[in-house]
Nucleic acid binder design. Structure first.
Length: 576
RNA sequence: GAUUGAUUAGCUCAGCCGGUAGAGCACUUGCCUUUUAAGCAAGGGGUCCGGGGUUCGAAUCCCCGAUCAAUCACCA
């Protein structure tokens, strides 16, 4: 077996695997293992008297997370999908006959932390009081060849925690094995989605799927990923939103549709942005944005209750209360409150002037809507810690939104802010095809002015509206952001199993055999590799005297006890 | 993209003014029949991120690069 590049511990584990095979033990057996209970169920159902029959013959399987070996008795912790339980191995119970191999050799010498085993036995309480499983029989189910990080814990204090973010994200499986709070956040994420789905289904709304590959990336303003379809020889975009497709379905006669959608945006990555992210969008016919506000706060409250059994939850050093009803503040009132300016009816130039007075940078490409958005974003947004609906956005910022029924220049739109961040966005959907066409044309003009976020025109969507879409309200909510809020995580990477990472730098394959092939003694070939000569080419380019010094120095420093080659020999390697 | 910081054993980290690379856990060997961050004793394990430079001598100082993190910029 070639052990090049493996650490001592990895080599030992591979050797243990070979020895298991020699004992005719399959370290990767095919057969079903008849698990009949989870660790957590044993802990929950255990009774010191009148032990339930179920616990008198348990069969569990999981990963060995720690071992304490004391001669003929040992304790280990077994971790299954629900939690951990201590298991007790006693030599003469594992090996009732004369052959003590299963305990002395297999358990004590050939198993390691990280191996997956199955055990059969009965529940009991140790002298120290810990509920445990007394093992009568164990089976190797999977040998682990890499050592796990060892995380220890006592009285809630965690020692040697596995925390390096890069390793946690690149090797999420290790993170999940070793950090229970990580697993918990992901279980909560799924529970959030399930709660929402159930809420929607109970109202009779239809879960649908719409295209991810779109000929026009519409429904939002963002840079898309672009790809190419060979058979049709056309460019296709990964969707940045699914809004326009869901509305087509409302045109088609469904009166409530929703989709948990992966969207893709070819933009920066940071603590709150990942190039692919999940959004829930829902559209309901014959409703307006006021109805949608009630619907949204009911949904969010349900999610909080489903996860925490309370509407109050901790977020960093703050407490957020998701109890209905949430506050409703118009965008103009928010700006008035936090800046003192009343921007109602102000012209573009006047707004630019206000921005200047507030110290907000502007540029010529910004229209009225964008300027107001900047003021709100700079001065107001971060103040809304408790769940708050900001309502009635300027028309320029909202090209897909119906005009306000009362106030000129506004639209029927709200965004939900929690902890100073936008969580959800909703409208009374614009269903007037002529107005919609004009709004798209306004976007084109913004685009011509240099606004690279302006939307494209989707002619087929306009065609759909021309057939008639009922009055409809739609809402989108970022599932990743919602999960961050609900699980008290500040980073999107902590709520995505596999966040986007830069590709890992590939290490050169290191192998001394290339040097052995050109006639160098194997021991010295290894030294060459160790001292940074990774190819024959690198060797040929080396300075003979310097190389001689380097390898002799390494021999001495590492106390290898090799006989140093002469300078002539080293020169020979380089020149031969 | 900018600034700052980080990168040392399988993991968590120390290493001061440049002078033979350290600790705890993990691992190996021995002792131990209800332990629990098990314990006791002994031992093995390092491309100090990579590349250059200064120096008699670099983990340490300087330069370049890679990666990660924080902050900012960008991002409905």
């Amino acid at each position: 077996m070639d052990h090049t590049g493996l650490s001592e511990q990895e080599i030992l584990r591979r050797e243990a695997l070979v020895k298991l095979n020699e004992l005719s033990i399959d370290a990767y057996p095919a057969a079903e293992y008849p698990v009949n209970i989870y660790s957590t169920d044993i802990l929950a159902q255990f009774k010191d008297e009148n032990m339930p029959d179920k616990l008198k013959a348990v069969c569990i399987a999981g990963r060995i997370m720690s071992r304490r070996i004391m001669g003929n008795a040992s304790f280990a912790e077994l971790q299954d999908s629900k939690g951990r339980i201590q298991v007790y191995f006693k030599r003469d119970d594992i090996c009732p006959g004369d052959d003590k191999t299963m305990y002395n050799v297999v358990f004590k010498r050939l198993l390691d932390i990280g191996d997956i085993i199955g055990v059969k036995g009965y529940a009991f309480r140790t002298q120290v009081g810990e509920i445990s499983v007394h093992v009568t029989e164990f089976t190797v189910l999977s040998k682990s060849l890499r050592p796990l990080p060892i995380v220890k814990e006592k009285d809630g204090q965690v020692y040697d925690a596995f925390t390096d973010p890069e390793m946690r994200y690149r090797q999420r499986y290790v993170d999940l094995i070793v950090n229970p709070q990580v697993r918990d956040a992901f279980v909560k994420r799924t529970k959030i989605i399930n709660t929402m789905r159930e809420f929607f289904n109970n109202q009779g709304y239809l879960e649908v799927e719409t295209p991810i590959l779109q000929p026009i990336a519409g429904g939002a303003a963002a840079r898309p990923f672009i790809t190419h379809h060979n058979a049709l020889n056309i460019p296709l975009y990964l969707r940045i939103a699914n809004e326009l497709y869901l509305k087509r379905l409302i045109v088609g006669g469904f009166d409530g549709v929703y989709e948990f959608a992966k969207d893709f945006r070819n933009e920066g990555m940071d603590r709150t942005h990942n190039p692919e992210f999940t959004v829930l969008e829902i559209y309901v016919a014959y409703k307006d944005y006021k109805w949608m506000m009630n619907f949204t706060e009911e949904m969010v409250e349900k999610v909080a209750l489903a996860l925490h059994n309370t509407t109050k939850l901790k977020l960093g050093d703050k407490e957020i209360d998701f109890k209905r009803p949430f506050k409703r503040v118009t965008m103009y009132d928010a700006i008035k409150k936090y800046t003192g300016y009343d921007i109602g009816g102000k012209s573009e130039d006047e707004l630019r002037q206000i921005c200047q007075e507030l110290g907000i940078e502007t540029d010529k490409a910004m229209g009225k809507g964008k300027l107001i958005d900047e003021i709100f974003g700079e001065k107001c947004e971060s103040n809304f810690i408790q769940p708050t609906f900001i309502i009635d956005y300027p028309v320029e910022m909202s090209p897909l939104t119906k005009k306000h029924r009362e106030v000129e220049g506004l639209t029927e739109r709200f965004e939900l802010f929690v902890n100073g961040k936008e969580l959800a966005n909703a409208y009374s959907e614009l269903n007037d095809p002529i107005d919609q066409r004009e709004r798209f044309e306004d976007q084109m003009r913004l685009s011509a002015k240099g606004d690279d976020e302006a939307m494209f025109i989707d002619k087929d969507f306009l065609k759909a509206l021309e057939y008639g879409m009922p009055p409809t309200s739609g809402m989108g909510i970022g599932i990743d952001r919602l999960t961050m809020v609900m699980t008290d995580n500040v980073s999107i990477q902590d709520v995505l199993f596999f966040p986007q990472m830069r590709p890992e730098k590939k290490l050169e394959e290191i192998d001394e055999s290339v040097f052995v092939e050109i006639g160098i003694d194997e021991d010295w070939a290894k030294v060459l590799v160790k001292t940074g000569i990774h190819s024959v080419k690198a060797l040929k380019e080396a300075n003979p005297n310097k190389l001689h010094q380097t390898i002799c120095g390494y021999n001495k420093k590492s106390q290898l006890g090799l006989t140093n080659p002469s300078q002539e020999q080293v020169k020979g390697w380089i020149e031969n």
